[in-house]
C-alpha cells in the first residue's frame, strides 16, 4: 500500500469533491408524527403551578413525557404570556361545543386562571435529531436529548479534513481494486477493510462473481480478513488485486490477553464503492463490522435503499453507515457496470 499512499499524498487529493453523510435509522430520519391536543391560555399567571399539578393528575400525558406541559408565548401577539396543554383531543370528553368547562369537570380542576381552549399539534415521539426537533418545535415545545455527533454528521461535518484525506485514500484503494476486477471481467465493485486503530489496511478485494456467483466484493473481503487471522476458505490467488495483511498479533509479539486477538471484523471499518446488497449487508452484521463507508447507493441496497440492516431492530449487532465517500468516482464505476450489463443482454439476443 505504501507507494500508493505517497502518490496520493503528493497529488492534490480532492476531498472537497465529496461529503460523507450518515445513513440513519428510520426512527431518526422519518417525518415526525403529530397528534392534536387542546391548549388554553393561562390568564392568571399565579395559578400556573396549581393548574399544572391538577391537569397532570386529571390528564396525565402517558407516553408523551417529552412534551412540555406549558409554553411561553412571547412575541406571538398573545395577550397572555403562558399557554398550557389541557389534554389530547382523543382524551377529551365527547362534546359538541368544546369549552374549558366541558373539558374540565368542576371537581377535578378549578378553571380559575384558564382561558378558552384551542387546538394545537404535538409530536407523538420525542425528536431524535436536530431537524426533527426544529420541526416539532414549530408546533409545541418538547425536550430533546441531542446526540451531538448525529447533528454534526447530518451537516456533513463529522470528519475533519485530515480524516477525510485518509478516508479518500481507503476508498481510492477500493476504487483501484474495482477497476482491476473490471479488467478481469468482473463487476466493477471494490472493497477495503481497515483497522482504524492502527490505520492499517487488513484486506482489499473486488467482485469475483465470474468464478462464484456469491463472491461479491464484500464477501471476498470478509474471507480475506479471515485469512489474515489464519482462517478463510477460498483462494483468490488468481486475482492479484485481492490481498490481505497478516493480523497485527501475528506480526508483533503475541499478546497473552485473549481479548486483544482480532475477532472476525470487530472494530474494523469497511470501504466499498457501492452500497452492499442484502447478503453482503447481513454478512457484515455476522462479522461484527465497526463502520461502513460506501460511495454510492445501489438499487437493491440494504444499508439505506431497500433496508437499513445496520439499524434493524431485533438484530444483535448494529453499526454506523456513511455514504458519499468519493461519490462521483463510485457513481462513474457503477454506470460503467450498468452499461456493460446492458451490453451483455443485447449480446444474448
Amino acid at each position: 500500500m505504501e507507494p500508493q499512499m505517497k502518490r496520493w499524498k503528493g497529488s492534490a487529493c480532492d476531498t472537497d469533491s465529496w461529503v460523507a453523510y450518515p445513513v440513519l435509522s428510520d426512527d431518526q430520519s422519518q417525518d415526525v408524527e403529530l397528534i392534536e391536543a387542546f391548549a388554553a391560555p393561562i390568564v392568571d399567571k399565579k395559578e400556573t403551578s396549581r393548574l399544572i399539578r391538577e391537569l397532570n393528575s386529571l390528564y396525565p400525558l402517558n407516553g408523551l413525557q417529552h412534551i412540555k406541559r406549558v409554553r411561553a408565548c412571547k412575541g406571538k401577539g398573545s395577550p397572555h404570556p403562558l399557554e398550557v396543554l389541557v389534554c389530547l383531543v382523543s382524551d377529551a370528553p365527547d362534546v359538541k361545543d368544546v369549552s374549558i368547562g366541558s373539558l374540565l369537570p368542576s371537581d377535578g380542576v378549578r378553571h380559575d386562571g384558564l382561558g378558552e381552549p384551542f387546538v394545537v399539534k404535538v409530536p407523538v415521539r420525542p425528536p431524535l435529531t436536530r431537524p426533527q426537533f426544529e420541526l416539532v418545535s414549530k408546533h409545541w415545545p418538547t425536550s430533546f436529548h441531542e446526540d451531538k455527533q448525529v447533528t454534526v454528521a447530518l451537516r456533513g461535518e463529522l470528519f475533519s479534513p485530515p480524516q477525510k484525506a485518509t478516508m479518500h485514500l481507503y476508498m481510492m484503494s477500493a476504487f483501484t481494486a474495482a477497476e482491476a476486477g473490471k479488467e478481469m471481467g468482473m463487476e466493477a465493485v471494490g472493497a477495503v477493510v481497515v483497522n482504524p486503530a492502527t490505520q492499517r489496511i487488513i484486506a482489499v478485494g473486488h467482485d469475483c462473481r465470474g468464478d462464484h456467483p456469491l463472491h461479491h466484493a464484500v464477501m471476498v473481503c470478509i474471507d480475506l480478513v479471515a485469512q489474515s487471522q489464519g482462517g478463510g476458505c477460498y483462494s483468490f490467488d488468481k486475482y492479484p488485486a485481492c490481498r490481505f495483511t497478516l493480523s497485527d498479533t501475528d506480526t508483533f509479539k503475541c499478546s497473552v490477553e485473549a481479548s486483544s486477538q482480532p475477532y472476525i471484523c470487530t472494530g474494523y471499518d469497511l470501504y466499498v464503492t457501492r452500497e452492499p446488497c442484502v447478503m453482503c449487508a447481513m454478512a457484515l452484521v455476522h462479522s461484527r463490522i465497526g463502520r461502513v463507508f460506501y460511495g454510492t447507493a445501489s438499487a437493491d441496497g440494504a444499508l439505506g435503499t431497500k433496508f437499513k440492516i445496520h439499524s434493524q431492530k431485533d438484530l444483535n449487532h448494529r453499526f454506523e453507515v456513511y455514504k458519499g465517500v468519493l461519490s462521483k468516482q463510485c457513481e462513474d464505476l457503477k454506470s460503467l457496470d450498468s452499461h456493460s450489463r446492458k451490453q451483455r443482454l443485447e449480446d444474448c439476443r
Binding site: 464477501m219 470478509i222 487471522q229 482462517g231 478463510g232 476458505c233 472476525i264 471484523c265 462479522s287 461484527r288
Partner: peptide, 22 residues
C-alpha cells in the same frame, strides 16, 4: 455451520451447501 473453524462468520450451513452445489 463452519464459522468457528474458518473464522469467517458467513460460513453458515446453507453457504457451505451452495458451494458444494456449484
Amino acid at each position: 455451520n463452519e464459522v468457528n473453524e474458518t473464522k469467517n462468520a458467513t460460513r453458515h450451513a446453507e453457504m457451505v451447501a451452495l458451494d458444494q452445489l456449484l
